[in-house]
Simulated assay, not measured.
Amino acid sequence: MENNQSPVEIRERLLHTALLAFNEKGAKFTLEDISRTLNISKKTIYTVFSGKKELIEEMIDEGFREVKEEESYIVADTRLNTLEKIRKMVIVIPERYQAMDFRKFATLKESYPELYQRIEEQIEREWDLTIELLEKGMEEGVLRRFSIPVFKIMIEATMERLLERDEREGFEYMEALEEMMDIVIKGIETKGGEKEGKD
């Protein structure tokens, strides 16, 4: 790996392996776990990342960059009506993160509280595309008039609470997001909204 791959390829493999290790152990995974899995030296890891904290930070940022890409695809998808776009936009999870045990992110609160705060900040920012869709839904008459700031706060608070939940609560993160959106959409759509929202 060290001799045959470019720095970009090494970085991508490190991020992918860190994601798998984090999914298994949360913040308790070690750089030794990464080096052993990839059969490389820790020295090689340090040529790309200054340490575990930076590796996790980049893993988080990469995930949210992929979320933004997915959101752009959703907005441009002419097969989806406005309500369908809103549903997908609010709970979008990139494909390689869909099998993630999101409860593991709670392990960051103790070890790397600033990184956990970074996740919360990411959840709370860059709502512009979603807000545009909500406003479009109101204009089309498929959504009733409601307070978008209140909607935003409700979604953010639910997502953040789901990250902190106890694993004994018996539901998966993606399932919980889907259920949340069922409840939310039923509360904001007008009667017959699904049909009226077709592009």
Rank of each mutant, 00 (worst) to 15 (best):
Glu132Tyr: 03
Glu124His: 12
Glu126Lys: 11
Leu133Phe: 02
Ile148Pro: 00
Val150Thr: 13
Trp127Met: 01
Arg144Asp: 08
Gly137Val: 03
Val142His: 04
Ile131Phe: 09
Asp128Ser: 11
Val150Ser: 11
Phe146Ala: 03
Leu133Glu: 14
Glu140Gln: 15
Gln122Trp: 00
Thr130Tyr: 00
Gly137His: 07
Glu124Arg: 15
Phe151Val: 01
Val142Lys: 07
Leu143Ile: 08
Met154Glu: 13
Glu121Cys: 01
Met154Leu: 15
Ile131Thr: 12
Leu133Trp: 02
Asp128His: 12
Gln122Met: 01
Leu134Asn: 05
Arg125Glu: 15
Ile153Trp: 08
Ile123Gly: 01
Phe151Ala: 10
Leu129Val: 12
Met138Pro: 04
Phe146Pro: 05
Ile153Glu: 15
Glu126Asp: 15
Ile153Tyr: 13
Glu121Met: 07
Glu121Ser: 15
Leu133Gln: 13
Val150Tyr: 09
Ile148Asn: 05
Arg125Phe: 07
Arg144Asn: 05
Glu140Val: 01
Glu135Asn: 07
Arg125Lys: 15
Pro149Arg: 06
Asp128Tyr: 06
Asp128Gln: 14
Met154Ile: 14
Glu135Cys: 00
Gly141Lys: 09
Phe151Asn: 10
Gly141Asp: 07
Val142Gln: 06
Glu126Cys: 06
Glu132Arg: 10
Lys136Gly: 02
Glu140Pro: 03
Glu126Arg: 12
Lys152Glu: 13
Ile131Arg: 11
Asp128Glu: 15
Lys136Cys: 02
Leu143Glu: 09
Met154Asn: 13
Glu121Ile: 04
Gly141Pro: 02
Glu126Gln: 12
Trp127Pro: 04
Glu139Thr: 11
Glu132Asp: 12
Asp128Thr: 12
Met154Gln: 13
Arg145Trp: 00
Phe146Gly: 04
Glu126Gly: 10
Glu124Leu: 03
Glu140Trp: 06
Leu134Lys: 05
Phe146Met: 12
Leu143Trp: 04
Phe146Trp: 06
Ser147Asp: 14
Asp128Gly: 06
Lys152Pro: 00
Glu132Gln: 12
Lys136Trp: 00
Ile148Lys: 03
Met154Lys: 11
Glu121Ala: 14
Phe151Cys: 07
Leu143Pro: 07
Pro149Glu: 04
Glu139Gly: 03
Ile153Phe: 10
Val150Ala: 11
Phe151Lys: 08
Gly137Tyr: 10
Lys152Ser: 05
Arg145Phe: 00
Gln122Ile: 00
Gly141Arg: 09
Val142Leu: 05
Leu129Cys: 02
Leu129Ile: 11
Ile153Gly: 01
Ser147Lys: 05
Met154Ser: 14
Ile123Trp: 11
Glu132Ile: 00
Phe151Leu: 12
Glu135Arg: 10
Val142Ser: 10
